[in-house]
């Protein structure tokens, strides 16, 4: 029978790993943003090899993230690259979502009218200034909401790292379960925590989106 007391007791145990879950999410997100942006810029600027970068993003999006995690975790050591599970975890999540964010950046950049780049060029601005001072501020409005949503998706993907023994929340729950032979309650506790986080952050993203729409200058 379902033990409500045990459920209540499970929360603090699992929440101890909340910090790890959160900072893995943030680190992976940062990596995904950087890689995704690079992927898109490289695809855009390379006329001959643009399709290569497109294939890379397609490849990453066409294979399950769990398989990518397994691959990186088990295969890299064969080539002499041994990294801690945490690093592999952050890297695989970052890599996987970079492929999705590349698409977001593409849409964002495309949404800025071509005339903006032309005006910036005509003024003699160098390429970095064109991107940083003219294109990116205008992109923000278009990418804020999708990026917020992918952040939530990333958060929900961190439990996958339990399979490579990263000390995040699902891992903590599984450990509790294997110690007590009662898995249901820790799982429900984990589920509740993630639901609260996911829905909470999604709401925040929506509020942010509305704020951005309101202050839209143009």
């Amino acid at each position: 029978m379902f033990d409500l007391q045990f459920l209540a007791d499970a929360f603090p145990v699992i929440l101890e790993s909340l910090g790890t879950t959160l900072w893995v999410t943030i680190a992976s997100c940062a990596l995904a943003v950087v890689l995704g942006f690079m992927l898109e810029i490289l695809r855009r600027s390379s006329r001959q090899f643009g399709f290569v970068f497109r294939f890379v993003t397609d490849f990453i999006r066409s294979t399950p993230i769990l398989v990518q995690i397994y691959f990186l975790y088990f295969v890299l050591p064969q080539f002499g690259v041994t990294l801690p599970a945490l690093v592999i975890g952050v890297f695989s999540l970052g890599l996987y979502y970079s492929a999705y964010l590349a698409e977001v950046f593409k849409a964002g950049i495309d949404a800025v009218p071509r005339g903006q780049t032309e005006a910036a060029q005509s003024l003699g601005l160098r390429w970095t200034d064109q991107v940083v001072r003219v294109i990116m501020p205008q992109m923000l409005r278009h990418i804020a909401a999708p990026m917020g949503n992918y952040f939530v998706s990333l958060l929900k993907a961190t439990p996958y790292l339990a399979v490579i023994a990263v000390p995040e929340m699902l891992g903590a729950a599984l450990e509790l379960g294997s110690d007590t032979f009662r898995y249901a309650e820790p799982m429900v506790a984990t589920e509740i925590i993630f639901l609260v986080l996911a829905i909470g952050i999604a709401q925040l993203v929506r509020v942010l989106e509305i704020r951005m729409m309101r202050s839209a200058k143009r």
Partner: peptide, 8 residues
């Protein structure tokens, strides 16, 4: 023709 002022 379309001004291309920076809206932000």
């Amino acid at each position: 023709q379309h001004f291309n002022l920076f809206p932000h």
